[in-house]
Computed example of a mutant assay.
Amino acid sequence: MAQRRITNPALFICDLQDKFRPAIHEFPKVISTTQKMLKASQILNIPVFATTQNKTRLGETCPELGLDAADGVKTVIHADKTMFSMLTPEVRKALEKFDSKLSCVIVGIESHICVTQTTLDLLHEGHKVYILADGVSSCNKEEVPIALARLRHEGAVVTSSESFLYECMGDAGIEEFRQIARLVKETSSSTKDTLQTLCKI
């Protein structure tokens, strides 16, 4: 019987808020990748953790992500914070409900601040961390490769959304394969555009 390659994935969405739109390099591309990952999370039943950074000042999570909307994606937790890492006491408490360490896949902003500190904390807690290079950015685009190089050195896996989804499945024989393959096909144009924009070597 076909089994998934990654059995305990979790999607972490870091601070994708309205007020960051004009400031973040290629923000719409980060949103596009996040939307794809959210659709995949529903197909593969991947739990979703999300945060906002000081939403009183910086606004709510972008509405097009549909987090916690009546017909949208339900999150394990959607917490506001002032610290930079997503691992607030509230999020840590939510993580305790899981029996084993998670394979955490991170999208969001900013690569060199909140994404970096979240990654370091998750690694310190013994979780595996995947950072999607086509799903993270910063105000200054030059910060991104520096952050990703550091986090790779710290033990995180830097990969792409499509690579992660296929690794997560691991086998074309799993029940959800056709739905994920359809999603990948439907988003292939935006994925290519995003990779060419955010992942220049």
Rank of each mutant, 00 (worst) to 15 (best):
L44F: 11
E143G: 00
F177I: 01
P47H: 10
V76R: 10
V105H: 13
L120C: 00
K74Q: 14
G108M: 03
S188Q: 13
H153S: 13
A2P: 15
R150N: 10
F177Q: 07
N54T: 11
L65I: 08
Y130K: 08
C139F: 13
V91K: 02
F49K: 04
L87M: 15
F27S: 01
L38G: 00
G170P: 01
V158K: 05
I201D: 01
G59S: 03
P145N: 11
D193S: 09
M169P: 01
K101F: 14
F27I: 03
A149L: 02
D121S: 15
V144Y: 06
K55F: 05
Q17F: 09
M86A: 12
R182V: 11
G108P: 08
R182D: 15
V107L: 05
A2Q: 04
L11A: 08
R178D: 11
E96W: 07
D193W: 00
G59M: 01
T82P: 03
E142F: 11
H153Y: 10
L123V: 09
L95C: 09
D68G: 13
K29T: 00
D171M: 01
S161L: 14
L44Y: 05
G126E: 05
Q117F: 14
K74I: 07
H78G: 11
T56G: 08
S163T: 14
T88F: 07
T75F: 07
A181F: 08
T194H: 05
R5K: 06
I31Q: 08
L123F: 03
